[in-house]
Design a protein around this nucleic acid. Structure first.
Lengths: 132, 132
DNA sequence: GTTGACGTTGACGTAAACGTCAAGAGCGGG
DNA sequence: CCCGCTCTTGACGTTTACGTCAACGTCAAC
C-alpha cells in the first residue's frame, strides 16, 4: 500500500488489491476491460481508491453468487447512479426488482439445499452409530 | 417385479424433459457426458425415470446457484450414496460440511445484497417524490 | 418403400472468464 | 548508465458449458 504522506485518502496499486483479495493482476485488468472498474491513472499506471476497492469487493460478491460479469456490472451501477431523471429512476427500480427476484430464488434454493443436507447428514451420523 | 396396470412408473423421453425444463436435448446429453445423469436405454434411446427427472432438477438448482458441473455432480452424489463404510461416511460428512459452508457464504452475500437493494430502492423512491 | 418425426454419436464452433507469454515503458538505487 | 523491479498493453492459449451441423439409425404412417 503506497500512500504518500500528504495523501488524505489511501490509494492502492494493482498488486496491492491483487494480494489482498487473492486475485491476479490480469483478472483485475480484465474486469476493467469489461467495464467493472475505472481506476484513476498516474501516467500509465492505475491507482485505486477505496471506492474502487469497494467496487471490486462487490464484483467478488457477485462472483460468489455465480453471476456473469455483465450482470455484475449492471448491479454495481445501481450503487453509483446519482440523481436521475424520472425515466432513469424507473429503469433503476425495474433493475432492482429484477435482481431481487434472482436473489430471492437463489435464497430459496439455498434453504432447500441446506435442509436436505441436514437430513442426509443426520442419516449419515445414524449410520455411523448403528454401523459401528 | 410386475407392475400392475395402474402402477406403472411414468417415464420420459429426452425431448419430454427438454420441453418441461426448458433445456435443449444437447444440454441434457452433455450433462450425461459429464456424469450428472445415467438414464436407462431402450436400444440406443434414452429413457428417463422420475428419479432421473429429479436428478436433473437438482442439476438446475445447482446451476441457479452458479456451481460448476463437477461440483454439482459431487453434490448430487451425496443424495444417492447408499450405506457405506465408516471411512466413506466420513468422507460424505466432510463434503456435506464443505458444501454447507459454500451455501452459508452465499446466503450471507444474498442477505447483504438484498438489504442494500432495499436502501437503494428507498432512496430511489424518495427521489421520485421530491423530484416530481 | 419412402417419408418424416424422433433419436443417436461425433466433430467442430463459440462465448465467458480468465491464464500465459512477449515486448516494452518508467523509475529508483548503486 | 545500467540493473532490477513494477507496471503496461497486446496476442494467444485454455477451460467450461454448451450450440451447431453432419451423417446415420428406427419405426410408424401414408
Amino acid at each position: 500500500m503506497n500512500a504518500k504522506a500528504d495523501d488524505i485518502e489511501p490509494v492502492f496499486s494493482i498488486t496491492d488489491l491483487a494480494q489482498e483479495l487473492d486475485l491476479t493482476t490480469r483478472t483485475i485488468r480484465f474486469y476493467e476491460d469489461r467495464g467493472l472498474l475505472r481506476p484513476a491513472r498516474r501516467g500509465q499506471q492505475r491507482i485505486y481508491s477505496k471506492a474502487d476497492r469497494t467496487r471490486l469487493k462487490l464484483v467478488l460478491r457477485g462472483k460468489r453468487l455465480g453471476w456473469p460479469l455483465d450482470d455484475i456490472r449492471e448491479m454495481i451501477e445501481l450503487y453509483e447512479t446519482p440523481d436521475g431523471e424520472r425515466k432513469q429512476l424507473e429503469v433503476m427500480l425495474a433493475k432492482i426488482s429484477q435482481s431481487r427476484a434472482t436473489l430471492l430464488q437463489q435464497r430459496e434454493d439455498i434453504e432447500l439445499a441446506l435442509s436436505e443436507f441436514d437430513d442426509i447428514e443426520a442419516r449419515c451420523k445414524q449410520q455411523l452409530l448403528t454401523n459401528h
